[in-house]
C-alpha cells in the first residue's frame, strides 16, 4: 500500500522573523505544523558560535582554528567558512564582571568587527550577567543599527532595557530567554510585546540541556510551546525558537574529560561533536527554527540532516 502522508491542520502559524540585512538576510519560522510534518518553514537555520574568550574552550578548537581564534573577526570568518553555517553567534564572555570584566566599549568593538568580517547574519550574546548584558546589548544595538542583529538574550531582569533599545530604538531583533520555563517563555513575550516590541522582532530562547542531562524536560517544553502556538493559536507563543546548544554540549563530562583522563572513551573532539550533534538534532526535531553549535563538523552534520529530512 502506498504511503499516504497526513498533515495535521492547525489554526495557528509560527511567525517569520528576518535576521541580518541586505543580501545576508535570512528568515526563520513560518511553519503551520509540528516540525518537519508539513511543507513550509523548516529550513532550520544553523549557526556557528565563536567567542572572545577562546581560552575557555576545549583544546581541540585550537587545532581547528589556529591563530584565527585570537582575533574575533578572523575567527568568525574562519568559522563560517569551515562550517558553511547560515549565521554566526559571537559570545562576548569577556564582559563578565565576575571574570575578565572587559569594558562595554571593547566588547562592542568586537561585535562590530565580527559583523563587518562576515556576510551572514550575526547574533550577539552577552556574558549572562543581567546587569552588564543590559548595558552591553544596548550599546551593541546602537552601534550596529541597520544590521538587524539578534540580541541574545533578554531575561526578566533586563528585558526593558534590551527590548527598548534593540526592538524599538535601533530596530534589532530581541531574543527572550526563559531557561526551560514554559510559563516564563510566555510571560517574557507578553512583557516585551506590552513594552512595544513587535512580535515579528522577537525570537524565543527557550533554553536547552545536553542530551542525557534532563533533555526530556526541554523536549516537553518545546512541544508544549509549539502546541500552544499552533493548536491553541496562542499568539504570545508564535515566535520562532533559537537555541544555542554549544555551551551545554561542551560542558558535560563526555566532552570535557581529556583523553588522558578517560582513555577508554576515545577522541575528546569526537565525543564533543557527538554530544553536540545529539543535542542539536533533538532540538531541531523539537521545534528550534535556528540552532547554534560550536564545532564546524556539528554544523555540517545538522545542515545535512535538515536537508535530508526535507528531501
Amino acid at each position: 500500500m502506498p504511503y499516504k502522508k497526513t498533515e495535521q491542520k492547525f489554526n495557528g502559524k509560527i511567525g517569520v522573523c528576518e535576521i541580518g540585512a541586505g543580501d545576508a538576510a535570512i528568515s526563520i519560522g513560518g511553519e503551520k505544523t509540528l516540525p518537519f510534518l508539513g511543507g513550509e518553514g523548516f529550513k532550520t537555520a544553523v549557526g556557528i558560535a565563536i567567542t572572545d574568550s577562546p581560552e575557555d574552550w576545549e583544546g581541540c578548537f585550537a587545532a581547528v582554528y589556529g591563530d584565527d581564534m585570537k582575533d574575533p573577526a578572523a575567527f568568525a570568518k574562519a568559522a563560517v567558512e569551515k562550517s558553511g553555517a547560515d549565521f554566526v553567534l559571537v559570545k562576548l564572555a569577556s564582559a563578565d564582571p565576575n571574570g575578565a570584566d572587559n569594558s562595554v566599549e571593547n566588547c562592542v568593538a568586537t561585535a562590530a568587527a565580527v559583523e563587518a568580517a562576515v556576510n551572514v547574519p550575526v547574533v550577539i550574546e552577552g556574558c549572562k550577567n543581567a546587569e552588564k548584558d543590559a548595558k552591553l546589548l544596548e550599546a551593541v544595538a546602537k552601534t550596529l543599527e541597520g544590521k538587524n542583529v539578534v540580541l541574545f538574550s533578554a531575561v526578566e531582569d533586563n528585558y526593558k532595557t534590551i527590548g527598548a533599545a534593540g526592538g524599538m530604538a535601533y530596530g534589532q531583533k530581541v531574543s527572550a530567554e526563559s531557561a526551560v520555563d514554559i510559563n516564563l517563555a510566555k510571560q517574557l513575550n507578553i512583557l516585551l510585546t506590552q513594552l512595544g516590541v513587535k512580535p515579528q522582532d522577537i525570537v524565543m530562547d527557550v533554553g536547552s540541556a545536553a542530551a542525557g542531562y534532563g533533555f526530556e524536560y526541554v523536549a516537553s517544553t518545546m512541544d508544549r510551546i509549539r502546541l500552544a502556538g499552533l493548536g491553541q493559536n496562542d499568539d504570545s507563543l508564535q515566535m520562532p525558537i533559537m537555541t544555542d546548544v554549544s555551551n551545554d554540549s561542551w560542558g558535560v563530562k563526555e566532552a570535557v574529560f581529556t583523553e588522558a583522563e578517560a582513555p577508554e572513551w576515545g577522541s575528546q573532539e569526537n565525543r564533543g561533536i557527538g554530544m553536540e550533534i545529539a543535542t542539536a538534532s533533538a532540538c531541531v526535531i523539537g521545534g528550534s527554527n535556528a540552532i547554534i553549535v560550536r564545532h564546524p563538523e556539528s554544523a555540517k552534520t545538522i545542515k545535512s540532516m535538515v536537508a535530508g529530512l526535507l528531501g
Partner: peptide
C-alpha cells in the same frame, strides 16, 4: 490546560 499560564495572562 486549554491555555498556557503566564503571570501576565490577564493583561494579554
Amino acid at each position: 490546560n486549554n491555555i498556557l499560564y503566564a503571570d501576565s495572562v490577564l493583561e494579554f
